[in-house]
Design a protein around this nucleic acid. Sequence first.
DNA 1: GTGAAAGCGCTAACAA
DNA 2: TTGTTAGCGCTTTCAC
Lengths: 331, 331
Amino acid sequence: MATISDVAALAGVSTATVSRALNGKSTVDPVLAARVLDAVRELGYQPNGPARNLRRQEAAVLALIISDVENPFFTAIARGVEDVAHAVGYSVVLCNSDEDAEKERRYVDVAVQERAAGVIVSPTATASSVGALVRRGTPVVAVDRPLPDQEIDTVLVDTRQAARQATTHLIEQGYARVGCITGPAGVRTADDRLAGYRDALKAGGQRGSTRLVRRTEYKAAGAEKAAADLLGQEERPDALLVANSAMAVGVLTALRSHGLRAGRDVGVVAFDDVPWAGLVDPPMTVVAQPAYELGTVAAKLLLARIADNTRAATTTMLGARLLERGSSHRG
Amino acid sequence: MATISDVAALAGVSTATVSRALNGKSTVDPVLAARVLDAVRELGYQPNGPARNLRRQEAAVLALIISDVENPFFTAIARGVEDVAHAVGYSVVLCNSDEDAEKERRYVDVAVQERAAGVIVSPTATASSVGALVRRGTPVVAVDRPLPDQEIDTVLVDTRQAARQATTHLIEQGYARVGCITGPAGVRTADDRLAGYRDALKAGGQRGSTRLVRRTEYKAAGAEKAAADLLGQEERPDALLVANSAMAVGVLTALRSHGLRAGRDVGVVAFDDVPWAGLVDPPMTVVAQPAYELGTVAAKLLLARIADNTRAATTTMLGARLLERGSSHRG
DNA sequence: GTGAAAGCGCTAACAA
DNA sequence: TTGTTAGCGCTTTCAC
């Protein structure tokens, strides 16, 4: 593979001039620059990234560590990050931690070792690994979930408020025993959605009960079992707040196998406005989170912090919107 | 940030011994190895990846270039690739080409520049960029779509056969005018699905007609327009073969706005067994592609080729399964 | 504006 | 088994 020396030799200049011509930092005689470009083309020269990164002590790469590639919420974030990063010449490496602290730690190590310019992470519950990054001075932005005890830029959705609003909506529609299926304890979004749910019950004068709440993985299978469990009880809930779209799949499946109809028999509101929400019968009421925007904001913050790591840490809170459809109406 | 020299100094050994102790290539006196490990821990040493890659002339990284991160089919492939790669110590960089030849070219360049050990790609229609990779001698595997005129390992689904089977199924269910909504011309899977559809029409004695076929982006919006267009015709189709799940969303939406019911009024079979397929009313008949397996097979082939680039290129063809549900039955 | 040369941190060939 | 040392390809002073 051709190196910068080959290009220099062919163009009849020094490697320094080739470097300058290619990076446009310092100004180069147009004639020489043209000779360099010709040589590059002729040799099919591709700069050696590791060599450049070694010399520069940093790679033009952002690491994005998300907890589930198969969750549309996170892929939408990824698109937001990519669009912003690419516009200014950064590449994005997408890492899937799978909600597993060990995998997260591993990817954090990779990011450090490859000298990524910065890291955007949606931390798992036990996110000690990211703390090390911060202490190293690596620019880090937390997205979707905060990183406790860390002074870092954070981009969140006001999910507690959204859960409260969604639950209040169910109560106002006349559902008398609203239940909640949320994610694992310790996962901040799961905790917040539960808290918002409880806020609404209290405000709406409904008596909460642990018998109306189930927590499982943010997956369809767990939610299906949880829903079946709740619906099998003597005093079963007549409505459910569901904490993400994968869980919604499980809940709707359970409803169907119990011969119950969403809306009429059991009110349903789920987080995330997936493309199919309008296609189920009745269409599903959802809390639409601004996922793409979460990604763009996080990327911009990270780029700003890469440029100047002395900035004070900020927390950005974006709002969610309740999209009312048939699954939260009795009629 | 601590370097290998710092570790060597603290452990009282040479940098070579540190390197050996950490990489386990050659054997090292257990006592020294322990001192090295202690020093590593104490300094929080993280090896400098670029330096290592520069020296080794290759990074333990596989690039996976897919055409749509938001398509569950491709994220399932990604999981398959990751699982295989991680098991043998490779990282996976996920790149989203967005069905855009220019973005694909850019990611190919990144892969070359970063000296990735190999590349797995689902090529866009005009995939000249990947040819350059192959000529460079970089190990490459094509997944989901072949790379024309290239002698490389390829992992495909027998999508033409699957389309034929799905269409035949619709004909056997009594649908008399089966239409097809597929992806852009030049995208091999889109072409193959159309070909399989036509195979079935011919075998089933139905007269094909271009008035029953529409081609658009592999997206919901395009498919919705295409379906509305088909359904607005005088002699409209009474069944549709739909080439992916995003398109299925558009088709079902169009059906609804025309007051038509899937199955009873218009038979529907779509590619890809998405989680929500069973939740729409009636449940959607799908062609289930072995996406995860596509990923694992591709990754294994790539690893084999990295180990030995003289192997002859192979083509692996995996089968798809038709999952019959209500949307393809009149009853 | 250009070139010579140092050196980023690591691994591997060679010597001891 | 261990240490010494060259050098991977690039960018960036520094001198001209």
